[in-house]
Amino acid sequence: MAIILGDHQYGKAENRIVRIVRDTPRHEIHDVNVSTALRGDFAPAHLVGDQSNVLPTDSQKQTAYAYAKRLGTASIEEYGLSLARHFVDDVPPVAAARIEIEDYAWERALVDGVEHDHTWVRKGQEVRTASVTVEGRGDAQRTWITGGLKDLVILKSTGSEFHGFYEDEYTVLEPTTDRVMATSLVATWRFTTTEADWNAVYAGVRSLLVRQFAVVHSLALQQTLYEMGKAVLEAYDVIAEVRLSAPNKHHFRYDLERFGIENDNEVFHADDRPYGLIQASVTRDDAPDAGPAWRRQDAFA
């Protein structure tokens, strides 16, 4: 029996970078979490401890900070693309680079009702995400870019049903035609291009996801996820695939009748675990290649 080294990669995870743009008295802020991963001819490092082809993870960290100057006007997708291309084009042992970015949003503090030029309050909403994978050099170079979001907590108080499900001897769940539906959404969308108005696409996709969650009369969270992904693909031909992961944040009607109090779907117990986890991808039937095997990280985070 032969024992061989399988797929491998390495990098510097979770570099916390804050970039302040001071070009005018009204400053701007970018607060990001950047992770790098490189693939290439690194087998000798594993097999015999030969580090001659290994760019230290500390060097990757320093590069991420150096390239952060480009975050002055760039989107996180543009920043990730420049960083990935640098590793592949300028570091000979590197065959492929993957950059994952989380973007933490801030809003300007209000002072006497006016937005302050250099003070912010951290937004408590979703985190914007992006990943960039660059593989190969020259004319053979291929690039895959994803945008996304996580921790988009959203709830609607009606317009959701769940009934007609399969039942076995252990089923105790009561069918319902009117329930609270809530989730903390993770969404990832894969682009077909390396050039787009990234910020505008993000805002548009987010708006569509929220809209579909609100307006689709849902017979199941699965149905809602499909309609969300379908709407995004119909609106943006630069997107090939949407992947959605939605924990079902259950809200159970609380038993007040025992106290002689009527509860007409007004008071609920919010149960954080265990929870149903609904995941789906919505794709075009002619979608281009999803990329290298290690892109599986984009599956269902």
Rank of each mutant, 00 (worst) to 15 (best):
I3T: 13
I4R: 14
Y10F: 15
R22V: 10
R26S: 14
H27N: 11
I29R: 15
H30E: 11
N33Q: 14
L38K: 03
L38R: 05
P44H: 00
V48E: 11
V48G: 06
G49R: 00
G49Y: 08
G49I: 05
D50Y: 04
S52M: 06
Q60N: 05
T63G: 01
A66C: 06
A68C: 09
E78I: 09
E78Y: 04
L83P: 01
A84C: 08
A84N: 08
R85K: 15
R85W: 05
H86E: 09
V88D: 07
V91R: 06
V91F: 03
P92E: 13
V94T: 14
I99F: 07
I101E: 05
W106V: 00
G113S: 08
V114A: 14
V114Y: 11
E115Q: 13
H118R: 11
W120I: 03
V121D: 05
R128Q: 14
T129G: 02
E135C: 11
G136F: 01
R137K: 14
R142P: 00
K150F: 01
L152E: 12
H163N: 14
G164R: 02
P175T: 03
T176E: 13
V180E: 01
M181I: 11
M181R: 03
A182T: 03
T183G: 03
W189T: 10
R190C: 05
F191P: 00
T192D: 08
T193N: 03
T193K: 02
D197N: 15
W198Y: 15
N199W: 00
A200P: 00
V201D: 03
V201H: 01
A203I: 08
A203G: 13
R206M: 01
R206C: 07
R206A: 11
L208R: 12
L209V: 03
V210Y: 04
V215L: 05
V216D: 13
V216S: 12
Q222N: 08
Q223F: 04
Q223W: 02
T224N: 09
L225R: 02
Y226F: 15
E227D: 12
V238N: 09
I239H: 01
E241C: 12
E241M: 13
V242Q: 01
V242T: 08
R243Q: 10
L244T: 04
S245L: 12
S245C: 07
P247N: 12
P247E: 11
N248I: 04
H251W: 10
R258L: 10
F259Y: 15
D264L: 06
D264Y: 05
F268C: 03
A270G: 07
A270E: 13
D271Q: 15
D272F: 04
Y275R: 13
S281T: 10
V282F: 02
T283P: 01
A299N: 12
F300E: 10
